[in-house]
Design a binder for these strands. Structure first.
Lengths: 234, 234
DNA sequence: TGCCGGAATTGATCCTCGTCAATTTTTACC
DNA sequence: GGTAAAAATTGACGAGGATCAATTCCGGCA
């Protein structure tokens, strides 16, 4: 059961948006206490309520953060791609537990940093704290955006916004590829797969985009932007 | 137009969940630079996008934080009662602007603290930062809860949860009173006033609660909890 | 006290989206 | 490369909640 623990280099720590600001000696310490976690496809990492001993960086692959309702329905709160970190906020909660479930969507490699030890480091440096405060503020802002979208926009509008977002962030002239199955994208947008599918079909028929497998190519961006603004006409 | 600025005492600063942890001399400095803002009923305080020069504490009254859609629909993201603070997260955003609109719901008195000056104070003390990190974590957690509710629960369930919450936090044996007009509560729950009204009527007819003006009295709490869990039967 | 205007309630209707079911397509794995 | 399982699509249908409209209720104020 025990195999040699994979060593983490300080340059690995530099990937992390917050830990990269650690002074060199602490960077080393963080690396020394970190470990690599490898997940197969669809393997759970932690459950809501588990004590939050680790915070994570996604080195490769993809994981989902989600809530479950009493009757088993799932709501994906966040999709974490390679290069992004998650669960930092747990370090500062009174009861240090994960507030969501986490599970991989593809085979993934994560770097796990020791939460307790990091807390000690943060206690030594307001600069570090400020980096973290900035990150949490951005997250909070993001969530407010999600709430607004859920309350004020309909399915089509949310989907249109998502497509425009993806196109801008990961797309090139040739279009872009969905990071994962439409099922999960749909869930993230709080829409049923059927509804997602129908919306895409409608967009295709309107000449707004073309699809081929997972590849999307936007044809009529202005039209999509009008839909995203909730004003398909005018 | 200029009248004498109302002075803020350090004991006023002690009301603030984060600033109360300032060392005495900084507490005095915060008080010296703070000011009182009085709002009439339904008076705007700031707009989304305004530079965030101040963070606020609600001394009395009530304000709403909200977003507006392009076609003018409003979504209340948060209701702030007396004793609560808001807008702290703006201090740590790259572009220090309010991400929501704010407007009073009743005549209110707010204490406005100088954001830039507070940032300087925070830079001196990891302890202060930790208090703030804790608060932002809690806020983030709250938002995740709202998102889950919007995605996974129906109108009845959200309303049931709200009633149970209110009953637990502000209620006594004789029931509790809505903090404001049902219109606003409904909006906060992302439900139309008509739907809210119908749900309450249904609860009354089921013998779950009684209402009288704004006063609510829960009769059959277990039944309401079942609805809140999404399993009305069993 | 009586009047006015906004809030709340109630009813009727509509429409978006979820549900259920049947295929088709894609993916994973031997 | 072939097969089984999962994902995606498509269609038909229904329910939850929004919308529109009409009263009724209540609070503030002269």
């Amino acid at each position: 059961m025990h195999k040699a623990r994979e060593l983490i280099s300080t340059s690995e720590v530099d990937q992390h948006p917050v830990l990269s600001h650690l002074p060199p000696e602490l960077k080393q310490r963080a690396a020394d206490r970190a470990r690599v976690v490898k997940l197969a496809r669809a393997e759970p990492l932690f459950q809501r309520g588990d004590p939050a001993r680790w915070i994570y960086f996604c080195r490769s692959g993809q994981v989902k953060l989600f809530r479950l309702s009493d009757d088993g329905d799932e709501k994906i709160v966040n999709l974490i791609d390679a290069g992004r970190s998650f669960a930092e906020a747990t370090m500062f909660m009174p009861k240090r537990c994960y507030p969501v479930h986490c599970s991989s969507l593809k085979p993934s490699e994560l770097v796990a940093y020791d939460a307790e030890d990091l807390v000690q480091m943060f206690k030594t440096s307001p600069e570090l704290c400020f980096n973290m405060l900035g990150m949490l503020s951005r997250r909070l802002h993001e969530k407010i955006g999600q709430i607004e979208a859920l309350s004020l926009q309909n399915a089509q509008t949310r989907i249109a916004n998502y497509l425009l977002d993806e196109s801008r962030t990961v797309g090139d002239a040739g279009g872009f590829e969905l990071p994962i199955g439409k099922k999960y994208v749909a869930n993230f947008l709080s829409v049923k797969p059927e509804t997602f599918s129908r919306a895409i079909t409608a967009f295709e028929e309107a000449g707004i985009l073309t699809t081929e497998a997972r590849k999307f190519r936007l044809i009529d961006v202005p039209a999509l932007e009008r839909i995203a603004r909730g004003t398909p006409r005018a």
